[in-house]
Design a protein around this nucleic acid. Structure first.
Lengths: 91, 91
DNA sequence: CAAGCGATTCGAAAGATTTCGAAGTCTAAA
DNA sequence: TTTAGACTTCGAAATCTTTCGAATCGCTTG
């Protein structure tokens, strides 16, 4: 977990997912959640393949979850991990 | 902070310092606290210079503090950091 | 079915970490 | 003052990460 969040880009992705999706239900349509990887690629100025790699790392660390929904992929943060990290991220 | 704890050896050092020194006063004699780097070097099977480097990283991340006390050096964990991380480390 | 969009996998290059030994610093005691 | 113990600093080598482009996969829609 620490390893996954030790990278600034991944920490940023996780924080944005955490705050943006706070309290949202998983089953909403993708348009409402607006978290496709390509947006992060633009925002972070990284290649799509690089962003994909970072998402994979976050997923393998158990920090986020992913689910294919049509041509996009949905993301949401792990509830336990979020609560455990909340104190840290808000300092 | 995440970067500092992303290394298994550093995480172990920090955890041991946290648990071993929990509630101890800083001004006790070094013998009572028993946390010289050389013990960690033995324990982790690393060269003294490597251990020194890891302690430096933890210090620069604000996770621990150091103070020269005679020929040894005293270590103790940062109180804020400990409390913030406690929830995570005990899971 | 073909085209297109978004995400993934792969290999390679660049960059960062980890580790060590050797030399150096600081302090306490002989 | 010299010796010894504990830590630090400084390269250098090995290893791991990050990043990209190219090729590929999965799904939707024209």
């Amino acid at each position: 977990m620490f390893k996954a969040l030790s990278n600034p880009h991944r920490l940023r992705i996780f924080k944005e997912l955490s705050t943006r999706l706070a309290g949202q239900v998983i089953n909403e349509p993708p348009e409402a959640i607006q978290n496709c990887q390509c947006k992060f690629a633009e925002h972070l100025d990284l290649a799509p393949s690089t962003v994909s790699h970072h998402f994979k790392e976050l997923r393998q660390a158990g920090l986020i979850h992913m689910k294919r929904e049509g041509k996009n992929v949905l993301f949401w943060v792990d509830d336990k991990a979020t609560k455990a990290l909340q104190a840290l991220l808000t300092v």
